[in-house]
Design a binder for these strands. Structure first.
Lengths: 131, 131
DNA sequence: CTCAATTAAGACCAAATAGGTCTACTATTT
DNA sequence: AAATAGTAGACCTATTTGGTCTTAATTGAG
């Protein structure tokens, strides 16, 4: 439906929340869950995915938690979506491998896809939080 | 996954095919199915949806079929996607009704969404077919 | 060194969506 | 009337997504 998934949406909400606070502060899943009102197991899953995607840094063990891996101004919406959902591609045609069918419409999709990625890359976490 | 559905993809293929031929020619579902290699019931479904969305004109009865409702240069990708999938909205936040949660990230999504719609509106069926 | 807190990995199930097919009906031409 | 096409919508299946749970592995504190 040309829409980001709920998990990605949660990711943005969590990241915006973290960006609005002291960058060095470690946030654990439990506190974030309480602060935002999303169930703990789900929050935990999202944080894990964001960490694997390099958006967050994690610190295991007691007193552990998560923090942004980079300044909020350097984390783009494109990056976040890719971390959670994989490469952005409006159609299979427009994926980085190109269209294996070599169909007529393929070049046009590439163009649209580039525009979409451009829009998403121009938007940083800092822009989105600024609370 | 930020992707159009298969049905929408079929729609583009069918429309591009039709745009590449005499505009007045009526195409019936059976011939289109044979020409493109998509099963008849599926082609039939897609054509029906495109007609309801005002992209195609239909003519019932024997010797009936479908034709473009407008010149290919006036049919945009945005229109086609909306006809099949409903309004384009990256998130619920960015739908035309606005974000009922009134969250921080909402204005940013509006912005991205506008950019995406812009890209899709700048691309016509004529651009995509031109075979 | 042990315990408690916390993330890591991934299995797992349920719900939602999408894909595709089918049947019955209506309209039009011959 | 008969044949051809579109119309409407039900229907089932497969895939994806959402969410939870269990079992590790890691680290700080006493």
């Amino acid at each position: 439906m040309l829409r980001i998934t709920k998990i990605t949406d949660y990711g943005f909400i969590l990241l915006a929340h973290m960006a609005n606070q002291d960058k060095e502060l470690l946030h654990n899943a439990k506190d974030l869950s309480a602060a935002i009102g999303i169930p703990l197991p789900t929050v935990s899953k999202v944080l894990k995915i964001l960490t694997q995607g390099g958006i967050l840094q994690s610190h295991q063990g007691s007193k552990g938690g998560y923090s942004l891996a980079k300044p909020a101004g350097e984390i783009t919406a494109a990056e976040i979506i890719e971390a959670v959902e994989g490469p952005v591609a409006i159609t299979d045609c427009s994926s980085s491998e190109g269209c294996e069918r070599n169909c007529v419409v393929s070049p046009s999709w590439q163009q649209v896809n580039t525009a979409v990625i451009g829009a998403l890359s121009g938007l940083t976490l800092a822009d989105m939080s600024n609370g």
